[in-house]
Write a protein that binds this DNA or RNA. Structure first.
Lengths: 335, 335
DNA sequence: CTGTTAGCGCCTTCAA
DNA sequence: TTGAAGGCGCTAACAG
């Protein structure tokens, strides 16, 4: 039934007794093939289980029916987006190819430029960039960014209201009675991270609390990079009574560090995160956090990309969705 | 800075004043290039922001450093696996390309054969197949299946103990006092679905309860396909007091259908699922379910694939992990 | 050490 | 209506 080696268009042509170009025409529904010939070719295709190679085809035709989703890695944030993206792409006629290009031997920064250069123009007709590390790239294909990078260029974009979300987070802590509130910042190059820091500062200022540099550390959005800064924040006499971490993963890591130091959460320390990834509610101490509508963000980004691809009018190039405070068990009043 | 059109190897060669093959040798760290030449070429590559096209390269070299993850769509089950797969692939030197091939215009069955045929031999060096719909495929590249299809061939496989998990689910319901227990089955072609049905039957038999055909419907593992069969199960006088759904998504849909019918869960109807995807604990009525170690399944599958690729000895070709009952709020005693 | 040549699988003119 | 020829971007012999 199945060939040890995949059938190529040449195998199909030979078996059907026609030329390669005729087979190609049949595959691509081109005019100029006799009905009988076409049907014979189709029979052979089915019989051989032939599928055209995506790599070879794209090299030549530059239209593949495949959209790329470029992420650094498949972690909770990007996989939640992926669900929304996949949902919106269903029945669009496009397949999805999600590529994780970060973390490898090529280091971190610029992974999506590399991914895009490797895939675009050949394998994919358009792309969604998730938290890109740079702001400029090849413009051959339509691109939509989710949670974009700071910078000059501005591709169509989907994000959530990070500024107001961050303010809400800190106001929640203030409302509980906290005055000494630490901030574990995100990736400095991302607009979202900057806005969350800005929201933190605004909320403190509005409450009449002076900004204290020593209460801010960079957590980098990843658990691995958050341990050391979290410890710096907590392992000292004048430690904060509450920490706002720029995302859930680093918030959870903060709680873990706190517990290693013998602190109880939320008794000795309140922690609030950002994102509301599944891990937030599933953690042993369910995490209070600012929820982003991740599925919807994915859906909207995909709709935007599809509009761009079909040449439809795009009313808004920048879509910002609302966030929402979700109170769980990791925050309480101090004392 | 960035070219409007991506630089190709020819652009690099011309700019550096060398031949295309010399550039190729530099890119691939081949012997026989003068250090000065190589360094000049590298400068040009950096300056032009050149990245080799994955499509073109793979067409020729048949070694890409990319592994495929083939899924029907990005839903909660496959994205949880993806987290584990991605984690295990980190630092392996391979990038991941996750392809969702199902659902499109080409219908459902056989999507992964199609995906594999399109990607293998060209774009990817190996693949993970998630709940494949067929049991035979092109053997050119190493393949590991997660939650495999029933059938003759047996690729290396990772799954969980579906039989015992299903028995545990039904025993939980029996232990609560239920005697009339419905079953919303999964996709009949998957081994996991068959085993879950078998576990359901075994547990009933062990409890001395006769199997009742009318209490079994096929839910197909997807919310969309579960509505009608769930309603058939519940919309009648002699409805069951509890339902075991073959996965969480169809369990949740069952609860939704029950509520539409005016039934309270778990007061009027207990529902237990399978998988423990994030959605299970996040649902309004947190779902009692049988947890599969999805992250670990992904990690083990990736390790298996990496072993296969590196030609390492593979001690076990079939890995089965344990399941675990997680009691939440969707089950209680009848009455 | 470097460049020339051939061809991976496919699609697209252009002739026949 | 069909097929032959060229080339997409790249790598792998083989010459020079």
């Amino acid at each position: 039934m199945d060939q040890p080696r995949n059938a190529t268009i040449v195998d199909v042509a030979r078996t059907a007794g026609v030329s390669v170009s005729t087979v190609s025409k049949v595959i691509n529904d081109r005019y100029g093939v006799a009905a009988r010939t076409a049907s014979r070719v189709r029979d052979v295709i089915a019989q051989l289980g032939y599928e055209s190679s995506l790599g070879a085809r794209s090299l030549r035709s530059h239209r593949t029916g495949v959209l790329g989703v470029l992420v650094a890695e498949f972690e909770p944030f990007s996989t939640e987006l992926l669900k929304g993206l996949s949902h919106a792409a269903r029945d669009s006629g496009y397949e999805l190819l999600a590529h994780s290009g970060g973390g490898g031997p090529h280091g971190h920064a610029g992974w999506e430029r590399r991914s895009l250069a490797r895939l675009s123009g050949t394998l994919i007709d358009g792309a969604i960039l998730v938290t890109p590390t740079v702001s400029e790239w090849d413009q051959r294909i339509p691109v939509v960014a989710i949670d974009p990078h700071t910078g000059a260029s501005d591709p169509p974009t989907v994000d959530s209201d990070n500024l107001s979300g961050a303010r809400t987070a800190v106001e929640h802590l203030l409302g509980l009675g906290h005055r000494r509130i630490g901030f574990l910042a995100g990736r400095p190059d991302l607009l979202s991270a900057q806005l969350r820091e800005q929201g933190y500062r605004q909320a403190l200022t509005a409450a009449g609390i002076a900004f204290d540099d020593s209460l801010v550390r960079v957590g980098g959005f990843r658990a691995e990079t958050a341990s050391v800064p979290a410890r710096e924040l907590l392992d000292r006499p004048d430690r904060p009574t509450a920490v706002f971490a720029a995302n859930d993963l680093t918030a959870i890591r903060t709680i873990e560090v706190a517990r290693e130091l013998g602190l109880e959460v939320p008794g000795d320390l309140s922690v609030i995160g950002f994102d509301d990834v599944p891990e937030a509610s599933q953690y042993e101490i369910p995490l209070t956090t600012i929820a982003q509508p991740l599925h919807e963000m994915g859906e909207r980004a995909m709709q935007l990309l599809l509009d761009l691809l079909e040449g439809r009018d795009v009313p808004r190039r920048h879509i910002t969705l609302d966030t929402r405070l979700v109170v769980r068990a990791s925050t309480s009043s101090p004392d």
